[in-house]
Design a protein around this nucleic acid. Sequence first.
DNA 1: ATTAATTTTTAGACTACCCTAAAAGTAGTG
DNA 2: CACTACTTTTAGGGTAGTCTAAAAATTAAT
Lengths: 217, 217
Amino acid sequence: MLSLTEENYLKAIFSLNREVAESATTNAIAEKLDTKASSVTDMMKRLSKKDLVNYQKYQAVSLTKKGKEVAISIIRKHRLWELFLVEKLHFKWDEVHDIAEQLEHIKSTQLTDRLDAFLGFPDQDPHGDPIPNKEGQFPEDGRTTLSELNQKTSCKVVGVKDHSSSFLSYLESMDIELNTIIQIKTHHAFDSSMEILIEGKKEAHISKEVAQNLYVE
Amino acid sequence: MLSLTEENYLKAIFSLNREVAESATTNAIAEKLDTKASSVTDMMKRLSKKDLVNYQKYQAVSLTKKGKEVAISIIRKHRLWELFLVEKLHFKWDEVHDIAEQLEHIKSTQLTDRLDAFLGFPDQDPHGDPIPNKEGQFPEDGRTTLSELNQKTSCKVVGVKDHSSSFLSYLESMDIELNTIIQIKTHHAFDSSMEILIEGKKEAHISKEVAQNLYVE
DNA sequence: ATTAATTTTTAGACTACCCTAAAAGTAGTG
DNA sequence: CACTACTTTTAGGGTAGTCTAAAAATTAAT
Ligand SMILES: [Mn+2]
Ligand SMILES: [Mn+2]
Ligand SMILES: [Mn+2]
Ligand SMILES: [Mn+2]
């Protein structure tokens, strides 16, 4: 049985290596988990002994098959709980992450699977992130960001890339949420910023950074 | 912020003192939490320093106001989650306790209150136990056990006193569950056992112990 | 009132996890 | 190749929580 701490390390390594291969270095992991490099080294030795990570001194670490399975199951639980909180308990999408950080560690396969069924076997969480199924497979995700679209096109918000509370509440303040319709009026070439129309009502100017972090279709 | 371990100690002390006053001795607590007396002594010192228990060497321990509040909030969460598991995720009543033991430690007042609302502000868990409200008050509970009733009377099962998995699955095997109708045919005086009719269909003989652990009305 | 049995506490040690400071390894630069 | 900057590991120590074995206190019995 793994501890909450071990599970968090595995999840951190998984997400680092998902973004950029070979990027799960001691320092990167420490940063992500808000701990110190020496603590990471310590933990890598223990996880390695349990055959959860491939660790060699001074080298970036990777997950073993077993480690990957655990990480994915934590992510699955995290996202299912987030969806539950939003859909059933009416939380807003920027309020659920911290609670899900706790709920993701509840150990009961039955519970996870029944929650999955209760939610109708969803394949996206409230932030538009893919929810892996019982077998650990991620649903296909051919998502486009707003920044990839041309002028005069119209689209619907289906997710965010950046999940930070600051970004989410910025969106909230702009009245942008899941399923909001956005029309691109102008796409400035020089700084990639945009003039947009939100829900056909409100005009706004958004920066390149914002456009790159909004998934649309 | 309290640790899971501290919370479990508080809950154990609360339930010991609920049943019999002055009964939260070092040994009793150790037994309840499946640990050793020396560990309990150690923890009592720490909880005492945090003003959660009143502890004096060699004496039974009691909870302070603060300690009682924490214990009740854990119990509230435990019972709300149990009800959620049964009502919404269709678990059986003998399957939910262990999962609720984990869920009761999730820290978010908002979550608890919204779960409460989602379930319609219930005042009983799936085992018929009272669920304290947001203010920590237990709903009035004037429950009767089957053993208190006379011959030729009829009643409905509304809860159990003993929550052990073994008792619950014994009931399951007898087709006795929440809301089952039971008619008492004979109440033997010498051993307090009973001949009963379950749901008007099935006859059965039950012992005093069973009758004393079934709440009915 | 002694002695015996039982309960509780202390002493000392262990694991998981974390930290700081110092040592060692790796990489980049002239 | 030597020097520097940076990363990682080691050494040593801290806290929370646990355990066993022994000492001390309490309770029960003679
Ligand atoms: Mn999240
Ligand atoms: Mn986590
Ligand atoms: Mn329970
Ligand atoms: Mn518990």
